[in-house]
Amino acid sequence: MDEDLMDILCCPLDKHELELDVDERDDEEILTGTLTCTECGEVYPIEDGIPNMLPPDMREEAPA
């Protein structure tokens, strides 16, 4: 995930800003980390360079 994405990402639940915590990055992008809503505190994981912006109740692997 490119850090520029932070300019346009928001919490899917309340549309508030997110705070980025980076665990692992390479030259170009963030590979692992979390995005935390500054309002509701919900945490969205970044894994393998892909942020998972689904609310917790939609995160299971199988389709609904």
Binding site: L5, D7, I8, L9, P12, K15, N52, M53, L54
Partner: peptide, 12 residues
């Protein structure tokens, strides 16, 4: 640049 989300719900 891919992200997992429901339609456009996670954009400003």
């Amino acid at each position: 640049q891919a992200l997992r989300a429901d339609l456009v719900s996670s954009f400003c």
